[in-house]
Amino acid sequence: MGEDIESKRGVLRRTGSYLRSRPTSQKVGAGAAAALLASAPFGGLSGPAADGPGTIVAGKALMVGPYKVVIDKVVELPDLKPAVSPEPSQRVVVLDSHVTLTGDRPEYAVTLTQNVKIQGGGVKVVDGPRLYFVEDATQMREFNPGLTYRLAITFTTSGPWQGDEVTVKSRLVEFREEDSATLDPNAWVARDEIQAQGELPIVRRS
């Protein structure tokens, strides 16, 4: 046992003299590395802090995956005939928007509709969102890039919206060259993470 302690002391002594004999520049470098390691438990080694959810503001562009969405206003209506005809007790909340598919390839509408939602108002969303082209009230299910549509993004709610604001949330949709979950290359994949949200005033119309 005694021999063991002796040899350990020897190792420490030799290490100490080795460190002391290093040039100053190496001492400074090693000190910085040690400081960085010491800060690791407090986040020193992690990447830059992730941004919190962005803010959705009326009239400002919002990216939902490849889709550029500008919500101009939020309107509540008893119906949006001929596109949406809910029960008399229900209402339709419309995000009056301009939507453009960016990039250079087509996309199906689900990539947008599955990743935008509204909350609040003391009501439940029973259907939607669906996308209707305002010019002819037809439903958009497919998009080609480079065209901008004025769309009614419609949500059918269980009853009249309470309060003056609607919380609009969009999920993070990222482009993955390889996705181990779906094995589909070069696909837009939704993450279970809110990318942007905002409180927008609601306009009531009858």
Binding site: R105, P106, Q139
Partner: peptide
């Protein structure tokens, strides 16, 4: 049923009409 243009880009059919 889809289109391919001069630059090899794809365009998909619409169900709106």
């Amino acid at each position: 049923f889809f289109l391919v243009d001069a630059n090899d880009r794809r365009w998909i059919a619409s169900s709106r009409g």
